[in-house]
């Protein structure tokens, strides 16, 4: 059973939940209030929604052998644009559409650099990672823009039984799963990620596929950015979505998708994102000193990744020692 790729991530998730339940007995309680669910677990789902959404986009990018470091910056830009528009008196739907349109453009830019120009993904997206926050600052003119719009508030903090944010993220996850596994898209993405040269020679439109996944990642980052800013009714160009690219990448890796590209698992990404978010919550609930938070997270992540790696599982595999010479061998050896 430990062979299953998701064994250790699920074990880590369960372990973290148990830990939380021990430290805080009311953690597992779920209350119903005005037809919506509240409680520790629900909070994890709500707070984890942006990470999950970004991780879904990141999964496809990583499957093509790429990586997108700019998602945090793109999320900040989305929030900045939407809030600025609303603060300037615009309506929320237009604000969100505008923000997402810009994110699609940013995704197009990343995809262009990677698939057409041929720049290494880590470098290509680093450009926007650093420049993006500057862009967000320009939009907000260096201020934290607060808004108070009941419609805008819904995407990050609204409830329809469950938090709307997590419903959106799960919906996107399911839609992507259906789209990629129901058509040949998933197989072609994996093929491009495993062996781009062979795929091109087999007639796969690798360039278009790679380009598309960056656009999609940009879009996911945009929606996540709206969730984040809507949840706090503000756009903070400096801090919104800070380090979220790391959380998303970790979620994907914990979920068993290799950074070397190729086969990906969206279920794995879901589990990975939940592990990351629960870990974040745990860190606060068990009172890890703020200075040690990142170290603590890193230790857990490394542990999960190590346990998952094939080399380590070799160590756990029982090794039958060979009988020095079985009878058959001796028969043959006899002259």
């Amino acid at each position: 059973m430990t062979r299953h790729p998701l064994f250790w991530p699920v074990a880590a998730l369960v372990g973290l939940i148990v830990l939380n339940a021990v430290v805080n007995p009311s953690f597992l309680e779920v209350r119903i209030q005005n037809g919506a669910l509240y409680g520790g677990v629900v909070d994890i789902l709500r707070n984890g929604a942006p990470t999950l959404l970004i991780a879904v986009g990141m999964t496809l990018v990583i499957a093509t052998r790429g990586i997108d470091l700019s998602v945090g910056a793109v999320a900040a830009i989305a929030g900045a644009i939407a809030c600025s528009w609303i603060a300037a008196g615009g309506d929320a739907p237009t604000a969100m559409l505008l923000a997402l349109a810009v994110c699609v453009l940013l995704g197009l830019w990343n995809g262009f650099l990677v698939s057409v120009v041929g720049i290494q993904p880590i470098i290509a997206t680093l450009v926007l990672m650093t420049a993006g926050r500057g862009g967000a600052m320009l939009v907000t003119e260096g201020q934290i823009i607060t808004v108070d719009d009941p419609v805008y508030r819904q995407i990050g903090a609204g409830f329809v039984v469950l938090p709307i944010a997590i419903l959106i993220s799960l919906g996107v996850l399911l839609a992507v799963a259906a789209l990629t596994r129901g058509t040949a898209l998933g197989m072609l993405v994996e093929s491009v990620g495993t062996n781009p040269r062979a795929s091109r020679l087999a007639g796969v439109r690798s360039r278009r596929i790679v380009w598309t996944v960056y656009v999609f990642a940009g879009l996911c980052a945009g929606v996540a950015g709206l969730m984040i800013s809507s949840n706090v009714n503000a756009a903070d160009a400096n801090n919104a979505g800070l380090w979220i690219e790391m959380d998303a990448i970790l979620a994907v890796v914990i979920g068993g998708t290799s950074l070397a590209g190729g086969r990906y698992s969206l279920t794995g990404t879901l589990v990975g994102a939940l592990v990351i978010q629960t870990l974040t919550t745990t860190v606060y609930s068990i009172g890890v000193p703020p200075d040690a938070i990142l170290v603590f997270k890193a230790v857990v992540v490394i542990a999960v990744c190590l346990l998952q790696s094939p080399r380590t599982s070799e160590l756990f595999r029982p090794r039958r020692r060979a009988e020095p010479a079985d009878t058959r061998a001796q028969e043959v050896a006899a002259p």
């Binding site: 994996e190 495993t194 062979a198 020679l201 087999a202």
Partner: peptide
């Protein structure tokens, strides 16, 4: 230039057709 090592025989065999 040929094999997609991580995919199945089935996927490898239909790759060009599918593309």
């Amino acid at each position: 230039e040929g094999l997609i090592a991580d995919l199945t025989v089935r996927d490898n065999l239909i790759l060009a057709l599918q593309a």
